[in-house]
Design a protein around this nucleic acid. Structure first.
Length: 596
RNA sequence: GGUCCGGUAGCUCAGCUGGAUAGAGCAACAGCCUUCUAAGCUGUGGGUCGCGGGUUCGAAUCCCGCCCGGAUCACCA
């Protein structure tokens, strides 16, 4: 039992005995004592004043006397206004360290066969263009969330739904046929997703030109858009695709395969992966069947023009289109189909969709529809919505062309990491392979940490210049601190200084206790991160840990410490600290290097 | 207009299940490398926590109203 729990119980006991009133558990407020006061744990006594009929100081003193007498670990106490600051005996903190030293699992729940199964959908790209900055936030959040859920004892299936069909890919197909001159990724040396993305852009350019010409010729905007030859050709391709025209299907497969190859490279670079990939071309028909079933069961209704709708006005929402009047499916239909397939493939307890917050409404509707259709997890599917990524010079909008390409960004980060590392002389004596691995690790660490440290639900500002800054609250700062810890442990080893499994009994100083308090909170932080779906919590925790460690590192000698017991304690502390940082950063998908 | 989210230092962000004097980083200035890695550490300056009310011993945090910014309410995905 942790000391906090013991204190809580004893406070209840004390208040009951002293004042004849049994306080409720939520009245016991414990907090970490602020640094400017002496003590480790603080009890807030204001809630008990009504029972004690005494002033805050006197009440705190009486409680302090009682707790000091009844809890062995409490050495002494002091009172500041209504705050009872308890000083915990140093031996308790050494115990905390030793517990962590011999339990590398940090008390996390292990995953067993009857653990709850969580499916996390993330990434969800379109096959008509490469991944961009928004996808990076998505991928990093999804991957990290999966790691955090696993650490909390959930079975996790990471899934990706690839939006591989529809008018968007037909636009690229048409542009490639018309202006492609048979170009391939191999013939051009271009990544497949970029090649196809370029044709999508080309389509848009030509389309806009055609529309402008038609408007100049006297058409209205709507007429011009409908009559654009390029758009008509793209729609014709879509129709042929839906009719399973062999040539069209073959073309579609060829172009998509190029894109997938490109995506795989990007995913690999980002270090994200999936357990199961779904394709909308496989699920949209299932969705249609489900909607048809819903129609037959009277859950939905058909309008005169043949379109199918769900009436959600009773749930405070609008009416929602499920099938177009021509019988084709819409986005919602596809998501229903995908859900159906997933439910068939896995016994999902909890479904999490990592999708941008511009789709909040969509997922509200989806939850209601799935519930209506009888999916047991429909109503409490969780839409893990995250905010947009903005750029200093405006919004991040693909339609307006102001996007940061994911591959370009990673390349840029790697280049700067290499240059900076070289300037600082960090790569001296490295083989080219080691050097490359190191600066890539640093570049990815910088990018991932920069994005994950921000509360997911907030719109965030991505400043390319600042993101490559390796000082301060950044990934490289944490990686660097880890490398120093590892270096220290290596040096101890080469100096013939043994690092024991457990620390001997000593009295830690204030800085050391601060570090131990933080280490002690690790499982709690990770649990909370899973509860509120926030990798940012873990990121900022890692930073706190490292910041505290760096101060300690500068204030105290470790290997130069003459008292062998204190030295042994500090080495165990460093070892455990390294393990926590490694594990914590691992939950963010960030690798920490042995040296940098 | 309805719904949802945000507004904390010049900038980027923590803190939000109510607690002590609101914290980091960047940027500016001043120190610290013959000593475990200076991508570091220390110090200085910098705040009407959007505004107004309310609840409370106590509000950046909870409630109500308002202001500002964003998202969404498509036979787009």
């Amino acid at each position: 039992m942790g000391i906090e729990q013991i204190i809580k119980e004893k406070v209840i006991e004390a208040v009951s005995q002293l004042y004849g009133f049994e306080p409720k558990a939520e009245m016991i407020q414990l907090q970490s004592t602020r640094k400017e006061f002496e003590g480790d744990i603080t009890v807030v006594v204001f809630p008990f004043l009504r029972a004690s009929h005494k002033g805050p100081e006197q009440t705190a003193s009486q409680l302090g006397d009682y707790l000091t007498e009844h809890i062995q670990e409490i050495q002494k106490y002091n009172v500041v206004k209504g705050f009872l600051n308890l000083v915990i005996d140093g031996s308790y903190w050494v115990g905390v360290l030793n517990h962590a030293a011999v339990n590398p699992s940090f008390g996390f729940k292990s995953v067993t066969a009857d653990s709850k199964l969580v499916m996390i959908e993330y990434s969800s790209p379109n096959t008509n263009k490469p991944l961009h900055l928004g996808h990076i936030r998505n991928n990093l959040l999804g991957f990290s969330l999966a790691e955090i859920m696993k650490a909390n004892g959930y079975r996790v299936v990471k899934t990706n739904i690839v939006n591989d069909r529809g008018i968007h890919i037909c636009k690229s197909m048409y542009a490639w046929l018309k202006w492609g001159e048979g170009k391939t990724p191999e013939s051009t040396g271009t990544k497949g997703d970029h090649l196809i993305g370029d044709f999508y852009v080309r389509f848009d350019k030509e389309y806009k030109k055609e529309v402008a010409e038609l408007i100049a010729g006297g058409m209205s905007k709507e007429e011009a858009e409908a009559n654009s030859p390029s758009m008509q050709a793209a729609h014709e391709l879509l129709r042929k695709w839906e009719d399973r025209d062999p040539d069209t299907i073959a073309l579609w497969k060829k172009l998509n395969s190029w894109v997938y190859k490109g995506f795989d490279e990007t995913y690999k670079m980002l270090g994200v992966s999936f357990d199961k990939i779904y394709y909308e071309s496989d699920t949209y028909l299932v969705g249609k069947d489900e909607v048809t079933r819903g129609l037959e069961e009277g859950l939905f209704y058909r309008r005169e023009d043949g379109s199918v709708w769900a009436d959600l006005t009773k749930d405070g929402l609008d009416e929602k289109l499920l099938l177009r009047s021509d019988g084709t499916s819409v986005y919602m239909t596809q998501d229903i189909g995908t859900a159906k397939l997933r439910f068939k493939d896995y016994s999902i307890d909890k479904m999490i969709y990592v999708v941008g917050n511009e789709q909040i409404y969509h997922f509200q509707v989806l939850a209601l529809l799935l519930d209506r259709l009888g999916f047991k997890w429909g109503k409490d599917l969780y839409h893990f919505s995250y905010g947009m990524v903005e750029l200093p010079n405006g919004k991040m909008k693909s339609r307006e062309g102001t996007v940061v390409d994911a591959d370009d960004l990673v390349d840029e980060m790697v280049t700067v990491a290499r240059q900076t590392s070289q300037e600082l002389g960090k790569l001296d004596g490295y083989s080219p392979e080691e050097a490359k691995k190191t600066y890539q690790t640093i570049a990815l660490g910088a990018l991932k940490y920069f994005i994950l440290k921000v509360d997911p639900k907030k719109t965030m500002m991505f400043n390319p210049q600042e993101s490559i800054d390796f000082n301060g609250n950044t990934g490289p700062f944490i990686q660097y601190s880890y490398a120093r810890i590892r270096s220290l442990l290596r040096k101890a080893d080469s100096d013939g200084i043994a690092i024991p499994q457990e620390s001997p009994a000593i009295t830690p100083n204030a800085k050391e206790i601060e570090l131990l308090k933080l280490i002690n909170r690790f499982p709690e932080i990770v649990g909370e991160a899973a509860d509120i779906y926030s990798p940012a919590l873990v990121a900022n925790y890692c930073y706190d840990l490292v910041k505290e460690f760096n101060q300690f590192y500068h204030d105290f000698s470790i290997l130069g410490e003459t008292d062998p017991d204190i030295r042994a304690f500090r080495l165990v502390l460093c070892r455990v600290l390294g393990e926590v940082i490694n594990r914590g950063m691992g939950l963010l998908g960030i690798t920490v290097p042995e040296r940098m």
